[in-house]
Design a protein around this nucleic acid. Structure first.
Length: 795
DNA sequence: GCTTAGGATTGG
């Protein structure tokens, strides 16, 4: 109970604290004493923003004045108080200036800042690890005697009944480990329903039936072994057994059952109470369940499915189609290959939902799951690309004699995946959020089959070395399938090598790298689909590639930087080469923006072209400032020198372009090194970066094209010549909606969002092949070069 | 308006 709120209705503080020990005044404190049987009181006079220590632990500082109930008895009436760890989260939101607090189980140490701040020679330190507790009552309102006002309801203590002590008719709170569950499904009444069986170390189990107006209100259980906490379940007898049903006010928390997973509750409740005792309970249940192997089912991948078994599959949805009135086909994959002969489910291509390029590309790895009856409704509402857990799939053996779908009789018995109707055995389809641990694992498995952009970059960084020596190949005979369709106007054209005859993709695939070819193919798929993800930041020194930081992330980093600054910085002052101004920013938190105007002869004539150094700004303010001022450099004064921030934040915004530095290859210098530049007329970003010791990151396009020409399919990267290919600068497209639209139009032309391959235009492309990796891991990659889109000039 | 489901031996 690390943070507790005292209530008006419960009487005076002193009475409420009986049993917490004896009150001790600030001037009676001694170093080295154990304060487990004493409490101190105080009114919060100053509250600082919380910040993180180097260890990642949070710390929160407040200053306490000896409570107004007792007049100060010495000049040491003001004392610094530091709250550490988990307790910070609770306290920083609830505690306010003026609140009266009582601390128990605190530690007393020497205050290193007593000489400067004139406060008490000692300070309080509290952590819930050592049992530190903060009792809070809010500010007295115009009363000499403090009124202890109730601030927030729901801070009461919950008791949890072990499952072997549950009695018929009781309304209880319970903890348990999931032994069996049905994914929430629509009941025949008005509600969604789920049934859950939980067990606990008392070796008893409890069957639970829960109803909720929507599936979200039901416990977010993803698998057997999850730890759950249920509040307000009613116990009743059914079939000579006790069962729990959801009572009014029912709420559930669910935790991943893995012992090393973060203890992060999944819940629909907007507010819930979770204390260190809860933390310990979850840890204990995890330990117990993990030692008790009978609780866990091991996850099964497609590669280890055995004929005739029933299993739960964690997968991604690639395509779907209705089969008949009672069945739907879901095409899914989990990154592994099922070794059995699978019956192909024929569907009408008109009603098939899915990207044909993707379906084709993944054809070796996807499986068709037939879902029946009640599951077709759920299947219908699923979005493509969603991560799913399909529970209790039947790997049904189809014998050789089954001449289904008029297929020729196959000597080898095959398999068909079916999800039978009903909810028996927990049958059902669950959508898993992409941040769940199982989806994180799944994504890794999916990516290992198809390299992520990060992997591609490792490939790409070797490009120049690998293929510089190869000459264009001798033209190969082009496949007839291609020749027949080559009369249309291509959507891309070559910028050189037009005299070379095209090679079929099959030929390209068959020949050894490195080599260069002219090809004619269709773009059946490309990645990333979200075009803003196709621009990345590239370091030409270490060849690393990274995403452009998100505005929200930058905002958080700026806020953290500001909090850290606020705790330490001294009064800003002018320097010879800049003038300092402080802007007070009111909402939502009191904040100071420090702006340093760099002096130059141009300052007076062109304020909009001048350079400013800023600190304490938000992302929004940065956008505004960068529209007014030519160059905005982000600084921090946490140390004695004015420095740049962490390089996850742009170091410079110039002409609306955000410039980033490489965290590995930069050696940031104090900002004062810019002083000599004030003599120069204009400040180029490259010059600023060089002087500041920053290895600048370059905006680049990185895309993967899946090309097909009827003879074969291959993936080719488009990157270092991508700007020429599109006729668009990667740095400009980030800040220009017009260019973003142009890029979208180009991609929609090259790879139309339709499923009819006849509508796809032909692309004339130069391709280079090259090797990546070593030994057995060596593979061939392809890159587009000397090619540009046709007919998009001036759009 | 106050039910619904109540783990379960499992087709197409």
């Amino acid at each position: 109970m690390p943070l507790q709120q005292l209530r008006e209705c419960d009487g005076p503080i002193e009475t409420q604290l009986s049993g917490k020990g004896e009150w001790i005044e600030y001037d009676k404190l001694q170093l080295g004493s154990a304060y487990t049987d004493k409490y101190v009181k105080g009114t919060i006079s100053v509250k600082y923003p919380s910040c993180k220590l180097g260890t990642g632990e949070k710390v929160f500082k407040i200053v306490l004045e000896e409570s107004s109930l007792q007049p100060p008895t010495s000049n040491q009436a003001s004392i610094n108080t530091f709250i550490f760890g988990e307790l910070v989260g609770d306290c920083e939101n609830v505690l306010k200036q003026g609140d009266t607090v009582v601390l128990t189980n605190f530690q007393v140490s020497k205050s290193p800042s007593a000489g400067q701040d004139g406060r008490h020679a000692f300070q309080f330190e509290l952590s819930d690890e050592t049992g530190g507790t903060v009792f809070v009552c809010s500010r007295a309102e115009n009363n000499l005697a403090p009124i202890i006002r109730r601030q927030k309801v729901g801070m009461k203590d919950y008791t949890y009944v072990p499952l072997n002590r549950i009695k018929d008719g009781a309304l209880v709170n319970v903890y348990g480990v999931v032994k069996f569950f049905k994914p929430p499904y629509r009941s025949k009444g008005t509600d969604y329903c789920t049934t859950v069986t939980i067990v606990d170390p008392s070796d008893e189990k409890l069957h639970c039936v829960f109803f909720g107006g929507n599936a979200d209100q039901l416990p977010k259980i993803y698998k057997v072994g999850d730890v759950v906490r249920f509040h307000r379940v009613k116990i009743q007898a059914f079939n000579h057994e006790l069962q729990a049903i959801s009572a009014p006010g029912f709420s559930a928390l669910t935790f991943d059952g893995a012992q090393n997973a973060p203890i992060k509750p999944r819940t629909a409740s907007k507010s819930y109470c979770f204390k260190s005792t809860d933390q310990r309970m979850v840890e204990e249940l995890r330990r117990w369940a993990n030692a008790n192997t009978s609780i866990f089912k091991s996850g099964i991948k497609l590669s280890d499915v055995k004929p005739a078994e029933y299993f739960d599959l964690t997968c991604q949805l690639i395509a779907k189609a209705p089969v008949d009135r009672s069945a739907m086909m879901l095409k899914v994959w989990d990154g592994t290959k099922c070794p059995h002969v699978l019956k192909h489910v024929p569907v009408d291509s008109k009603t098939l939902e899915g990207d044909l390029g993707e379906i084709h590309r993944l054809r070796q790895l996807t499986v068709d799951v037939l879902v029946y009856d009640n599951h077709t409704n759920v299947a219908n509402s699923l979005k493509l690309g969603t991560y799913l857990r399909i529970c209790n799939i039947h790997a049904k053996v189809t014998t050789a004699s089954t001449e289904k779908y008029n297929e020729s009789v196959d000597a080898e018995p095959g398999m068909e995946f079916q999800l039978h109707g009903g909810t028996s055995y927990g049958r059902g389809i669950m959508v898993l959020p992409s941040d769940s641990s199982d989806v994180q694992q799944l994504k890794q498995s999916l990516q290992s089959d198809f390299p992520s952009d990060q992997d591609s970059m490792e490939d790409l960084s070797q490009l120049d070395i690998l293929n510089s020596s190869s000459e264009l190949s001798v033209p190969q005979e082009i496949s007839s399938t291609c020749v027949e369709r080559c009369h249309e106007e291509p959507a891309t054209v070559l910028t050189a090598h037009q005299h070379i005859s095209p090679t079929s993709l099959k030929e390209v695939l068959d020949r050894t790298a490195p080599c260069k070819y002219r090809t004619r193919a269709k773009l059946v798929n490309y990645e990333p689909k979200a075009l803003y993800q196709s621009v990345k930041l590239y370091c030409s020194k270490c060849h690393s590639l990274q995403e452009i930081p998100d505005d929200d992330d930058i905002d958080t980093l700026l806020e953290e930087a500001f909090s850290a600054d606020a705790a330490t910085h001294s009064q800003p002052h002018d320097a010879g080469w800049y003038e300092t101004t402080i802007w007070e920013q009111g909402d939502p938190k009191q904040r100071q923006i420090i702006v340093r105007f760099v002096k130059s002869s141009r300052l007076q004539r062109f304020p909009e072209r001048s350079t400013i150094l800023v600190e304490g700004v938000s992302v929004n303010e940065l956008y505004h400032l960068s529209e007014k001022f030519g160059s905005v450099i982000l600084t921090t004064s946490r140390t004695d020198h004015l420095m740049l921030n962490d390089l996850s934040i742009p170091f410079l915004i110039q002409d609306r372009k955000w410039h980033y530095g490489c965290r590995c290859c930069s050696d940031p210098q104090p900002v004062s090194v810019l002083q000599p530049l004030t003599r120069e007329d204009s400040w180029k970003s490259s010059e600023i970066a060089k002087v500041l010791g920053i290895q600048q990151l370059r905006y680049v396009f990185v895309m993967k094209f899946t090309l097909a020409d009827g003879s074969g399919t291959l993936d080719a990267f488009l990157w270092d010549e991508a700007e020429r290919f599109f006729g668009i600068s990667a740095a400009d497209v980030v800040i220009s909606e017009v260019l973003q639209e142009k890029l979208t139009r180009i991609m929609n032309t090259l790879c139309p969002p339709t499923i009819n391959p006849e509508d796809f235009p032909w692309l004339e492309c130069c391709l280079k092949s090259y090797y990546v990796g070593e030994g057995l891991d060596q593979k061939t990659c392809y890159q587009v070069f000397d090619t540009t889109v046709a007919g998009f000039d001036g759009i």
